[in-house]
């Protein structure tokens, strides 16, 4: 699998602080790549470097197999975190204008825009001035403009901020759809829940450094703590000395326990031992959520 973007040892310092300190990431082609990290970690600076807005102090960026050039930005669809449109201009006219600046001809742009507007249910706003739209609707328009000209690389900086759950879901669906059509997608977020659902791989940046990188499933495996979720009847007596119970939760008809498996046991051995002591209603491996991975990675980083 080839990488669409390869960032190697990039360093960028501003007057008062270092934004990126030897950052290297690989964004695989045709995948959704999540750039995670707390506020101020350096995500936006990295994105701006890939977008050729600012230049790194040192290090290199490879774009689709060659060193990044100014002209490469025309093959990127970039949805910045802080973004805006002309407030006094009509929505449709504005979208056509921006699409033309991206190199589409007016007729083509209009046709495609109408498709997208229908999909996002904002066709009724085509002839309205932008200032009449709600923030969420403006974001939909901005999203459409970003992806309209079909660039191979899409960069979304905090795409979900400001969206209600229904529209965030719609956006996720569209992002996955775009990936399936072959686009490479790089997006930054601190909303971990969205990461598990749509990211194929991630890089976690904290204090200007990459602290964790890789395939989402691999990362979660790496951070797993051998805990399993065990569901037993509410009236069952279960208090083994040989297994550590991490958490305990009483439900109506069943109790849900979080049990840590001893290091040397296989799953079957573990289940067999559990079954000797109690009726089992449910058993599943509990992988850490990205939230937990995030917290642990950041905490570890801070301890070191």
């Amino acid at each position: 699998m080839s990488n669409f973007i390869e960032v190697r040892d990039v360093r960028k310092a501003f007057a008062n602080h270092t934004a990126l300190d030897g950052v290297s990431i690989d964004v695989p082609a045709g995948k959704v790549f999540g750039l995670l990290g707390p506020n101020g970690a350096g995500k936006t600076t990295l994105i701006r470097i890939i977008n050729h807005i600012t230049a790194p102090d040192s290090g290199s960026v490879t774009f689709d197999g060659h060193p990044l050039q100014a002209n490469d930005v025309y093959r990127i669809g970039y949805l910045p975190e802080e973004r805006g449109l002309y407030r006094k201009m009509k929505v449709g006219e504005q979208a056509v204008y921006l699409a033309r600046l991206k190199g589409m001809d007016a007729q083509d742009a209009k046709r495609k825009l109408k498709e997208w507007f229908e999909k996002f249910d904002i066709m009724a706003w085509w002839d309205k001035k932008l200032e009449e739209l709600s923030k969420g609707m403006q974001q939909k328009v901005q999203f459409v403009i970003t992806v309209l000209h079909n660039p191979p690389l899409l960069i979304f900086d905090e795409p979900f901020s400001g969206f209600d759950p229904v529209n965030a879901e719609l956006l996720k669906k569209e992002i996955l759809q775009l990936r399936d059509e072959g686009h490479t997608i790089l997006f930054s977020t601190h909303n971990m829940a969205s990461v598990e659902e749509i990211c194929d791989s991630i890089a976690l940046i904290n204090h200007s450094k990459v602290v964790l990188q890789g395939d989402v499933d691999d990362v979660r495996q790496r951070y797993k703590e051998n805990t399993y979720q065990l569901e037993i009847p509410a009236d069952a007596q279960f208090d083994p000395s040989w297994a550590e119970i991490v958490a305990h939760e009483h439900g109506g008809k069943k109790n849900v326990l979080l049990v840590r498996k001893p290091q040397d046991e296989t799953n079957s051995q573990f289940v067999a031992r559990l079954a000797q002591h109690t009726e089992i209603l449910g058993f599943s491996e509990k992988l850490p959520t990205m939230d937990e991975v995030f917290l642990r990675a950041v905490l570890q980083e801070e301890i070191h």
Partner: peptide, 11 residues
């Protein structure tokens, strides 16, 4: 209005 951010990759 940060329109320029949105246009930087096209113009």
């Amino acid at each position: 209005n940060r329109i320029m951010e949105l246009m930087v990759s096209s113009v």
